[in-house]
């Protein structure tokens, strides 16, 4: 009986903490991705932070809730879409007359703005999108293998 009551109290604490920290993780992660060409960080680091929201929701709510919110097929296709976007922006250099990976959108903004720095900004955002879907898919897959033993 004591064990059941302690379990209920622990569940409430973990669920509240997960509810509080998930928006912070998401906002911080997207901030680091979008400011990749202005400050340290970039695609990979921000993508891993956004994917950690999956782990927080799993800790708070258990595997059943997590598998209802995320559909694994769509996440896999979005990862490939991010990779294709990266390659297409690289090929834009050849299409506009220069070499592969060249910076061809040089007249978009000033130095220090959020939308500036040409091709680097587009490639950085697509890498961030690819990493967040890819690492999220990996974490969901490994949590799914633990599900029958450790329910909730």
């Amino acid at each position: 009986m004591m064990k059941g009551k302690n379990r209920q109290v622990k569940d409430v604490i973990v669920k509240t903490a997960a509810d509080f920290f998930t928006p912070i993780a998401l906002v911080l992660g997207f901030y680091i991705i979008l400011h990749g060409h202005l400050s340290p960080g970039g695609g990979f680091q921000g993508g891993v932070l956004v994917a950690s929201a999956v782990v927080l929701i799993y800790l708070g709510y258990g595997y059943n809730e997590v598998s209802k919110k995320f559909n694994m097929e769509i996440i896999k296709k979005n990862e490939a879409l991010g990779a294709i976007l990266f390659t297409v922006f690289g090929l834009a250099g050849i299409i506009y007359g220069s070499v592969f990976f060249a910076n061809v959108f040089t007249n978009i903004g000033d130095v220090g703005d959020l939308i500036s720095a040409g091709t680097i900004m587009f490639m950085n955002n697509s890498v961030g999108y690819k990493v967040l879907t890819g690492v999220g898919f990996l974490i969901l897959l490994m949590i799914g293998l633990l599900a029958p033993d450790n329910d909730n």
Partner: peptide, 11 residues
């Protein structure tokens, strides 16, 4: 690049 694009398109 063609080979890598082929891999991503297959997914």
């Amino acid at each position: 690049v063609t080979l890598f694009l082929g891999a991503f398109l297959t997914v």
